[in-house]
Design a protein around this nucleic acid. Sequence first.
DNA 1: ATCAATCATATTGTGCACAATCTAATTGTG
DNA 2: CACAATTAGATTGTGCACAATATGATTGAT
Lengths: 143, 143
Amino acid sequence: MRSLDNHLCFALYAASRAMTAGYRGPLSELGLTYPQFIAMVVLWEADGVTVSELGERLQLDSGTLTPLLKRLEQAKLVARQRNADDERELIVTLTDEGHALQHKANDISEQVFCRTGLEESHAMQMLGDLHDLTARLRNTPSI
Amino acid sequence: MRSLDNHLCFALYAASRAMTAGYRGPLSELGLTYPQFIAMVVLWEADGVTVSELGERLQLDSGTLTPLLKRLEQAKLVARQRNADDERELIVTLTDEGHALQHKANDISEQVFCRTGLEESHAMQMLGDLHDLTARLRNTPSI
DNA sequence: ATCAATCATATTGTGCACAATCTAATTGTG
DNA sequence: CACAATTAGATTGTGCACAATATGATTGAT
């Protein structure tokens, strides 16, 4: 029988929540939650994407993204408009205010990274391991 | 500027959700959610603990645990009773049914672990890395 | 013994996650 | 063209997470 400390799932769950907590303070000064922040990271990379493209990148569905994007819209960080060529699609675009936030947000990322005390190379290795693990879990059809 | 793929926070967040998703199917057959499952893991280790002891182990507060434990009580997996010596404390105990679930749950842990395709030694290394990371994030007083 | 301070848990409110379902727009096939 | 099937998002409902606050029990200082 595995103890709690022997469960990789719990180590991930705890680390993820600790990381989110690390971002919470700095992000609150920008008026962002952590999930809103990662949505903005995607938009800073590629502006003017559909909700489903955003969802594919973040692995989040419309049930999560629709209200989140509405809040970002209310905060005037993004605009949401239907694609004229296909009215089913909703295009999410950064506002000037949304673009302007990128520098501050980048500082926060570096700040939190420093707090982890990780060597860049060690972080890259963990990044790779986590990426592989995620891919394997996604590719295994449940049995 | 870091891309989404360069954010360790996102790698953790995505891996954690993928792992939870991996447990979802098997656990649903036991009528458990993932957070309920890890609470049960702690109780299988040490029965008859207070809510705050459980919370310390899981790093979850009463706002999360109180309703979760009520659902486990409704499912007849745990009993909740006040400590007669200090009525502020609530003692959580496994029922026979709760104890009986341990074997099935352990099978699920092993099953999901196999799905990750990880060598035991690699998993142990990741476990250690994640543990360290979590500890560092917790110990850094926000600046 | 009294009562302010502390402590353990519960409650409330906000914002995710995600399953299930719904609606409206588009596409493919006869 | 007609219309079933598909697609993109939105909505609804449940269950976390977590901050803030409330409630009730206990402790400690006078």
